[in-house]
Design a binder for these strands. Structure first.
Length: 395
DNA sequence: CTCAGCCA
DNA sequence: TGGCTGAGG
């Protein structure tokens, strides 16, 4: 899902916008996470012999397993996660949802057939395709987070849009998502691979939107138009338009209105725009999504001590988890809670200069950093100009 | 997906 | 230590 090929475009056109690092660099930071998307991936990935994990009454526990341990691991690394749940889908998305629904039905039929005739792998493949996040999955994860002392919010519509608003307002450092769509919602920073970096040997990517726009030489609106042209969740893609064509078209014409006009007036009819292609609506969803404002009372987030007995009751008594593991995890959670509070009290994150001499030294350091930055920018510009003179996006 | 335990 | 494998529910 998400916007195909956007990452490779950004990598080519705005390499400075991507910083790679380890999870340690994120210590002390708050990050917003799309909860429903996480739950979906847990339901798919947390399995044993191709089946979701279940307690002895047959209730699925994959989502709780995934969320419990992943959250714990982030907290272990000094990260303060904030989960954002999807609300109602926006209207326009209903088309996309209907299509998914249809695929799901087809997959269900395929599953029945596979059970009759196919191999075990076929059955497994089909059962993964039918995965859906239910109201119950969401409710159970919310209950879990409450017991863990981790804050969450239910977005009016799309979680990604809400994550972006919170990041933009400084309530969190960044939105953490694998989905590049989040940039369209105006998050200043997007963190990718936040969790699977430690286990696999992949770095965390920090993508800075301002530098993305600089590198592409585009306004935010043009960037959104580019993303829509690349194929977002809301609209069908235009056949034969891939990343390089999309980029070329937006640079040449400057807006989707002009791109569409040019396509329609093209005597050779090289591109066929789908019949129902409300790109203005899609753009509006990115520009003005239905979100809770960051100064709303719902956005007053607190990271609190876990409720150990509550966790044992829920995960052990009701869901059949191992008591040793749950208590061990709960203890880690509690310990990290304390140490991060301690670090805050000691000014660990923001050591402010106190004496005049320190202030002066601090100022010099900042100036030196600025100077360094300017130099680097100059050099980068030179490099780019030398590499190729790119056509500028029309305004 | 993440953990725990094992082994080089 | 760190990479690998099986279990977790």
């Amino acid at each position: 899902m998400g916007i195909k090929q956007l990452f490779s475009i950004i990598k080519d056109e705005a390499p400075d916008s991507i910083k790679e690092g380890e999870i340690k660099n994120q210590f002390g930071r708050k990050v917003a996470i799309d909860a429903s998307m996480s739950i979906y991936s847990f339901l798919i990935a947390v399995r044993s012999d191709g089946q979701q994990l279940m307690n002895d009454t047959g209730e699925t526990t994959s989502h709780l397993m995934g969320m419990f341990y992943r959250t714990l691991r982030m907290v272990d690394n000094g990260i303060k996660p904030l989960y954002v749940f999807d609300g109602a889908p926006p209207k326009l998305k209903s088309g996309e949802l209907a299509k998914r629904f249809q695929r799901k039905q087809e997959a269900t039929e395929g599953l029945e057939e596979a059970k009759e005739t196919g191999t075990a792998e076929d059955v497994e493949k089909f059962s993964r395709r039918t995965v859906r996040v239910t109201r119950e999955h969401n409710a159970e994860c919310q209950r879990l987070l409450k017991l863990m002392g981790i804050p969450y919010i239910i977005a009016p519509t799309e979680a990604e849009a809400q994550c972006a608003v919170l990041a933009r307002a400084g309530k969190v450092y960044a939105a953490a998502s694998e989905d590049m769509d989040t940039l369209c919602f105006d998050t200043p920073i997007l963190l990718r691979h936040l969790t699977f970096s430690e286990q696999r040997k992949e770095p965390i990517q920090e993508i800075h939107l301002d530098k993305v726009l600089d590198g592409l030489n585009m306004e935010r609106k043009q960037f959104i138009d580019l993303c829509i042209l690349l194929g977002c969740d809301y609209l069908d893609p235009i056949p034969k338009v891939g990343p390089s064509t999309a980029l070329k078209l937006i640079r040449e014409h400057g807006s989707l209105e002009k791109v569409v006009e040019a396509m329609e007036n093209d005597p050779k009819k090289k591109y066929t725009i789908p019949d129902d292609w409300p790109f203005r609506d899609a753009r509006d969803l990115f520009l003005e999504p239905d979100v809770r404002k960051a100064d709303h009372a719902d956005c007053d987030f607190k990271w609190e001590k876990p409720d150990m007995e509550g966790l044992v009751q829920f995960l052990v008594t009701e869901k059949g988890f191992s008591e040793d593991r749950v208590r061990g995890a709960g203890a880690r959670l509690e310990k990290n809670m304390k140490s991060s509070q301690q670090a805050r009290l000691e000014g660990f994150f923001k050591p402010l200069p106190k004496t005049d001499a320190e202030k002066a030294a601090h100022k010099r350091k900042l100036e030196a950093q600025q100077e360094e930055k300017k130099k680097k920018q100059k050099q980068d510009k030179k490099d780019k100009a030398a590499a190729k003179s790119k056509p500028r996006a029309a305004v």
